[in-house]
Design a protein around this nucleic acid. Structure first.
Length: 410
DNA sequence: GTAGGGTTAG
């Protein structure tokens, strides 16, 4: 089926003759047509099995897919393997290693793919270093944003600062995606003053920039600053969305600001902001932490689809309030609903058992937890290299501006 | 000329 489809697509895009190649508009149009077809085919690709067939066709029939279309096609194949939920990052890695001169799209797909993959915390930054050293592709705003995300996830502060200076040197620091990436990176590394410096330097801040800063303050418990910025955002005429509201609700939860939290909840309703899964979970947490467990349960009961985090938040809430029976009953309902518990869920039920001296129940949950493959302890280690990351050549600008770190590591 | 940023539980 796929074979036939591929054949028909490729046959409909005839290989340009030498005459056509000299006739630039015709050649260019033919190439573009072929690339559109290949992109379509990969976009519709259901799984790795089909993707491997497409990849095989490309390699076996280079005459129907000449350079530069082969480069384009391979970067599309790579993008699917590295980024799609039905992709395969190890296949992407093997493919990437045999591409002679990967283009910037391929580098970016791999950097982003490794950032999203489990147990690959070192890989994105190593790859970024390889990209800079290779000198065959210049980072763009996508590269910088993806690497910054990887640095945020891995709390790789030294590397992130270097990436900041690279953003400046390559003239990419005016990209809104890079700016948001920088704010998030600094906020996640608890360098909130640096995050704020980036935020203050943005001209024409959009909703994402405001939300990122509000979230940065909320995350480290600076509730007043978070809520103050939320007010300021509205004063400049920007309307918050559900993502902004989640951070604001989280700030109320951390501050134990029930009055404000209730006002925010009514604000969400009044403005018609969708109380999606994440926002509802944030509300449950806020009401629970502010002592209003009944209201938390009301929000939970109104939810249609609950994930592990929503169930766990409610279970932990009950446990914290000493409502042991409610916590254990909810855990049973969660299992009946076929939602998989995680370490936080078990922490909730075990803490409920501890509060009420239910030793035998506790032992059963302890065994069930280990049977589920959840170890009693887990470590999240940021195994990042602290070695220097330097571009191979070509700096666009120097020296660094105020607030932008030097590229040299001490 | 392929693609992207801000959100929740311990």
């Amino acid at each position: 089926m796929l074979h036939k489809l591929f054949r028909s697509i490729c046959c409909s895009c005839s290989t340009p003759s030498p005459l056509q190649i000299h006739s630039a508009p015709s050649f260019s149009s033919s190439i573009q047509h072929l690339e559109e077809k290949i992109a379509f085919l990969i976009r519709k690709c259901p799984d790795m099995r089909a993707l491997r067939q497409i990849h095989g066709h490309l390699l076996r029939n280079p005459f129907i897919c000449p350079f530069p279309s082969l480069t384009f096609a391979l970067s599309k194949v790579l993008g699917f393997c590295a980024l799609s939920s039905s992709g395969d990052i190890s296949y992407a890695g093997r493919l990437f290693d045999v591409i002679p001169q990967p283009n910037v799209f391929s580098w970016n797909s791999m950097i982003r793919g490794y950032s999203q993959a489990q147990n690959q915390s070192m890989a994105p930054i190593k790859l970024y270093k390889r990209m800079l050293c290779s000198g065959c592709a210049i980072p763009n705003s996508y590269t910088i944003a993806f690497v910054l995300k990887a640095c945020s996830n891995g709390s790789a502060y030294a590397e992130g600062r270097q990436v900041h200076s690279h953003a400046y040197r390559y003239g990419l620091d005016s990209s809104s995606f890079v700016q948001t990436g920088l704010m998030n990176f600094y906020a996640k590394c608890e360098e909130i003053a640096s995050a704020r410096a980036v935020f203050d330097g943005i001209h024409g801040k959009n909703l994402v920039a405001w939300s990122a800063m509000i979230s940065g303050y909320a995350r480290i418990g600076m509730a007043n600053e978070s809520l103050g910025l939320f007010r300021e955002m509205q004063e400049v005429g920007l309307s918050p969305d559900e993502v902004t509201m989640v951070s604001v609700i989280s700030a109320c939860a951390k501050a134990g600001a029930l009055g404000l939290g209730r006002w925010i909840h009514s604000f969400v309703k009044r403005k018609g902001i969708t109380a999606d899964l994440v926002l509802s979970t944030a509300l449950i947490d806020m009401y629970s932490k502010c002592g209003l467990i009944k209201k938390a349960k009301e929000v939970f009961d109104e939810m249609v689809d609950m994930d592990t985090m929503a169930w766990s938040t409610m279970i932990v809430g009950f446990a914290t309030h000493g409502l042991v029976e409610d916590a254990l009953n909810l855990f049973s309902r969660m299992i009946e609903s076929k939602v998989k518990p995680n370490q936080v869920t078990f922490l909730g039920v075990l803490s409920a058992c501890a509060h009420s001296g239910l030793v035998s129940h506790g032992r059963r949950f302890w065994s069930a937890m280990q049977d589920s493959g959840i170890p009693p302890r887990w470590n999240i280690t940021a195994a990042w290299s602290t070695s220097s990351v330097e571009p191979a050549s070509s700096t666009k600008r120097s020296p660094s501006p105020a607030g932008c770190p030097s590229t040299q590591t001490s």
